[in-house]
């Protein structure tokens, strides 16, 4: 899988928040082989220095995707993105512009505005978006080379709550790398997203808040792999009539 020209071997991305400890976070990455770690820096940076924690995240040896979690306007998000670029030395930014405090739903207008500004400024933007086709089009026009549609609102664990919408988004832009981000609670839901042809999944809460985060991370990694294989193998179409896999010749047809 290539994202902005970078080849990645894993199709699983993990957030780094809410784990019981950094040691368990590191174990989750080790067991899952996740290739990208998202990091939120807004709150940590505001409070002083998150240096020691970021060093631990850097030590994971995976690609870091800083995010603008917690930003409620395009302006805030752009400022945070610039801070992240300096701090982590990467043009990658997962762009979140929250439009609704309770559901953490993205603000489509703020998102497009911030994406346009960041892309023009040389960032490689990963926008956290809904499954809305028109919004997706606008984000691509703004210069985004990857889309990150939600499965369900952040942290809910509801899975893919609008399958039709996600399917149609996937079909509409077959060439654009897409990562289902947010709302996944179970490995089976990640597998489903992969079977639908999404390129990767990103999750945090489902792993971090599991009783055994490292085991759950591994579970997701296996599901992502299984789902991807299922997609690539060109699955059969469901049909109404039972079709026995061995011929009935030699047996009484009406037995």
């Amino acid at each position: 899988m290539r994202l902005y020209g970078t080849e990645l071997s894993s199709r699983l991305m993990l957030g780094t928040a809410q784990y019981p400890s950094p040691a368990i976070l590191a174990e989750a990455f080790r067991r899952s082989g996740a290739g990208i770690a998202t990091v939120s820096l807004r709150r940590e940076a505001a409070g002083g220095d998150g240096g020691a924690f970021w060093d631990l995240v850097r030590d994971l040896g995976v690609r870091i995707l800083p995010n603008t979690a917690g930003c409620h306007s395009a302006r805030e998000a752009v400022t945070t993105a610039r801070m992240a670029r300096e701090m982590f030395g990467t043009p990658w930014i997962k762009l979140e512009v929250i439009g609704h405090a309770d559901t953490l739903q993205p603000d489509p207008w703020g998102l497009v505005e911030a994406a346009r500004e960041l892309c023009a400024d040389g960032f490689e933007v990963f926008p956290y978006t809904t499954e809305d086709l028109v919004l997706a089009e606008r984000l691509l026009d703004a210069g985004c080379g990857v889309l990150m549609p939600w499965g369900a609102p952040i942290g809910t664990g509801l899975g893919l709550s609008n399958r039709h919408g996600l399917r149609s988004l996937r079909a509409q832009f077959p060439e654009v790398p897409m990562v289902v981000d947010a709302g996944l609670g179970l490995p089976s839901q990640a597998a489903e997203a992969m079977e639908m042809g999404f390129d990767a999944v990103l999750l945090n809460t489902a792993v971090a808040r599991a009783g055994d985060p490292a085991a759950m991370a591994e579970g997701f990694a296996k599901a992502v792999e299984a789902g991807r294989l299922g997609y690539e193998a060109d699955p059969m179409e469901p049909r109404d009539m039972a079709a026995p896999s061995t011929p009935l010749i030699g047996r009484a047809v009406l037995a």
Binding site: G47, D49, G50
Partner: peptide, 12 residues
């Protein structure tokens, strides 16, 4: 919060 900052509490 993952930070060694000891400054005043934030409004948020």
């Amino acid at each position: 919060i993952e930070s060694a900052g000891r400054g005043p509490a934030t409004l948020r």
